[in-house]
Amino acid sequence: MGSYFDLDDILAEEEPVGVQFRVAAAGVGILDPSAEENQVEVGSKVELPFWLAQELWYSQAVSLKLPNFYNERIRKEVKADPGCVDLRSRCPYFYELGCKLVPLAQDATLGSFLMFSLRGRYRDLLCKSHTAAGTVTPKFLARLTREETRLFEAGAESMKAFRKWRLEGTRLEKAPVLGKKRRPTSDTPENT
């Protein structure tokens, strides 16, 4: 999967996953809000970020529960009309996280479900990215996951580059970092 420095890969692993502890773990009481002592007891159910859940799963300390955006209800929604489901609000890393969960989960249908969703949404996405170039379509974009947004942008970019090439646009450009309106330098850090 992604490289060590890949930001999207890092953030996909930050998504919470529900786990149940099969063993006790001392000194990590902060993980379980209901813990009375500084310890997680056997059988307690907590939500951990994926990177931690994965590591503990490998050493057989926890059992995993699939996040609920992979459950039957969502699957039915996707089957009815893949393009209309708002996947971003469920999980912006729907596909990435799903791929990482496939080897860990007992659910054998997860992989094919992910494939089905992407395939169902892809054609619509590509079509819109080619025709809607230039004008914004926020309503549609708000439903896309990170991966899909990138696909959409790539489609729109390539259409733009094609038009520029056909009209022989200018080739010398200013440095993009100066492109924004220069703000007066102040000491407050920029909120980005």
């Binding site: 773990a25 990590v28 990177w51 931690l52 590591e55 503990l56 050493s59 300390a61």
Partner: peptide, 21 residues
């Protein structure tokens, strides 16, 4: 593999994670 081991493992993983970030 007792409670201390798994506690330690959790902290160890967290260190690696922070390093990566």
């Amino acid at each position: 593999k007792n409670a201390d081991f798994y506690g330690g493992l959790t902290h160890h993983t967290s260190i690696l994670r922070n390093k990566r970030c």
